[in-house]
């Protein structure tokens, strides 16, 4: 915690969890999808489902998908801006109580028809936890440089990737590995203390059995 967690963040109202946090979830969904989707379908859970209109949670998520930051004054006009930009959207309220009270599941489709799913929860003060990427359950907060690396579960992949980071003087703050089953689809989530550059992302993608590397920069 530092002084700007208490006097801050600078944000668009009315609620840090329902507005600022929702923008951040939308923005991460945009990055994971690899750019602006053409169609999104958003499922809202708990208090997000109950109060999203009054809190502008819908506008906030769409603003994030359009690439806006939590303090962007255009957030309140984001639905119209999305239509202008050719991004269609629909919202659905879910009665499922099992997930965290402030949760959104964002399914997006890009121009080529590729589908991406990102689920995130707003946990207070604008802070979030991303808990699902496509079919894999994950856990990261998006306040570090975060690398999402889908790969096939094979020996040596983690060593190869972490060696590349070490060679570039990048310290790992947290590393988690998730897999569907032994030898199956897997995902590494690496949060780093230093900035990760584009060139390094390409080198990571060249590692055998790594399918892709997505870099999420910290969102304030």
């Amino acid at each position: 915690m530092n002084v700007f967690d208490i006097i801050g963040p600078i944000m668009v109202g009315p609620s840090s969890s329902h507005t600022a946090g929702a923008v951040r979830i939308g923005k991460i969904a945009r990055v994971v999808a690899g750019g602006q989707p053409v169609a999104v379908s958003i499922e809202l859970y708990g208090s997000f489902a109950q109060t999203y209109k009054g809190h502008g949670t819908d506008k906030a998520i769409i603003a994030g998908l359009l690439g806006m930051a939590p303090d962007d004054e255009r957030i309140k006009d984001s639905l119209a801006l999305a239509r202008q930009a050719g991004m269609s959207f629909k919202f659905r309220k879910s009665g499922n109580q099992a997930v965290h009270p402030n949760t959104a599941l964002i399914s997006s489709v890009d121009q080529l028809g590729k589908k991406t799913i990102v689920q995130g929860s707003s946990v207070g003060g604008g802070r979030i936890v991303v808990n699902r990427i496509n079919e894999i359950n994950v856990k990261f907060k998006g306040d570090y440089y975060t690398l999402l690396i889908p790969h096939t579960d094979t020996p040596g992949v983690i060593a190869a990737v972490t060696k590349l980071l070490a060679d570039h003087g990048i310290n790992i703050a947290e590393l988690n590995m998730y897999r569907s089953h032994r030898g199956g689809e897997a995902m590494m989530v690496i949060e780093t203390d230093q900035a990760v550059k584009g060139g390094l992302v390409c080198s990571i993608e060249a590692v055998k059995t790594v399918k892709k590397a997505v870099l999420i920069e910290p969102i304030y």
Binding site: I6, I7, G8, P9, I10, M11, V12, G13, P14, S15, S16, T19, A20, G56, K59, D71, E73, I75, K76, G125, G126
Partner: peptide
């Protein structure tokens, strides 16, 4: 309340 820009201090 009108979705304008503010500083959370300590909250919105």
């Amino acid at each position: 309340a009108c979705m304008g820009r503010i500083v959370a201090a300590p909250t919105a």
